[in-house]
Design a protein around this nucleic acid. Structure first.
Lengths: 232, 232
DNA sequence: ATATTGACAATTGCATGCAATTTCATACCG
DNA sequence: CGGTATGAAATTGCATGCAATTGTCAATAT
């Protein structure tokens, strides 16, 4: 049907990431579809339709689906297709608990290994986040916020920790995507970030770990309170 | 070539888990191959060979491979096949750090939610483990030990935690598989388990969390010390 | 009117075939 | 003799086709 994929590369050679492997591209695109909510929780994942949409055959699509299932984003029902895992408030709370433990560990490790450059980058993100908070730019705030947490995890120097964190973080990102913060909680979160940065600068791992756990617990509480008001 | 798969089911109906989906069976079998060391770390994963061995075509095998890659057991090199992820001492140490944090959280949660039945089961496993330790039956000890840790994680009541724990645990199981404990470390580990059980019975979550972190840190240290003597 | 059965349509699971890339060996050149 | 080009064989990636299962709906029976 289509072998025009070979029509793309001859333009310019990119030795770094050719990314010509279709099932990997599909993996990312499908992830986006789920995170952005186009494939909502509980929705079926129709192979045929997605094949037509992305103009690929079922083989690479099915391979991407298996990977998504292993990541926990979808579930495979034998002979009955795939469904996007429904993000219940309980599942989100459970995930945030685990993420809290991971971030606590990350904070502790980061305090031991943090370089000046890494700290500087985190400080930069922090103040950028403060700016977005001052302007009430929620989306930009989210991005800066996420960047800080990811930077701390990365600064832990533990690749397994980072991978696990990214996976769990990705699972609930779609919930956070649609989450509108309460103004009071927003201010509180920013205050918590202030104490986080202080603990990090003081290299106080124990304290930072405690703060991050608390920070995540509070986020979980705020989310569940919001969920209670959503669809009763 | 082969459509004898349809010759198996008509005997008896098992409504629970027919498990007739080949790519899932393959997933388990390939996991076993890796854990048991037949596919050692760094080894290539030849599609054709495995297809012949399991008498299936490449399609379901490749699907299983994608899932294994998402689980972190193998890595996919575009156009160059798959390799079993090499378990360096550093990677094991990193994984144990994360597992330690997860078990600490599990212990804390378990202390809050533990039922009498669950505690009883853990106690039973504990004493069984003591028996195996007394008889110096390393393999049986490992199994009882693993059962205790899994039971504590399960008692946390956090499905995400359990899934994450199982994944990471599975990645390094093959390392533990070949690990021969030092006698002194073995005795020490058993002593740590005594304190774990006491903390669990006292519902002292903070204390249990600390013990489990320490327990894993010690295991990590023992493993790295052994690895240093392995292949210089 | 509801429940059961039957057939048909749609979807899933797997095997196979072909194009493209990599790999290995051999020959060639410096 | 070391390094590089060149070809074929092997391997990977993807598309397609077919068997099998599931879902749907209408006809019949209760």
């Amino acid at each position: 049907m289509n072998n025009l994929s070979t029509a793309l590369p001859p333009v310019g050679r990119r030795p770094a990431r050719p990314r010509r492997v279709i099932h990997e591209q599909l993996l990312e695109q499908l992830r986006d579809l789920i995170v952005e909510g186009e494939l909502a929780g509980g929705a079926r994942v129709p192979e045929r339709l997605l094949c037509e949409r992305f103009a690929v055959s079922r083989t690479p699509l099915r391979e991407a689906l298996k990977a998504l299932a292993a990541e926990g984003l979808i579930e495979l029902l034998p002979n009955r297709g795939a469904r996007v895992v429904r993000l219940t408030p309980e599942a989100v709370a459970e995930t945030l608990k685990v993420i809290g433990a991971l971030e606590a560990l990350a904070g502790q490790l980061a305090c031991e290994r943090l370089t000046a450059d890494e700290l500087g980058e985190i400080r930069a993100c922090h103040f950028q986040m403060l700016a977005h908070h001052a302007r009430r730019d929620l989306m930009a705030y989210f991005k800066a916020n996420q960047a800080i947490h990811q930077a701390i995890v990365a600064a832990s120097g533990n690749a397994v920790l980072k991978q696990t964190y990214d996976n769990l973080s990705g699972r609930i990102r779609r919930a956070r995507y649609a989450a509108n913060l309460d103004q009071a909680r927003w201010d509180e979160a920013v205050a918590e970030h202030e104490t986080m940065l202080r603990a990090l600068q003081a290299r106080d791992g124990e304290r930072l770990a405690g703060i991050m756990r608390l920070h995540l617990d509070n986020k979980s509480y705020a989310l569940s309170a919001q969920a209670a008001g959503d669809s009763p």
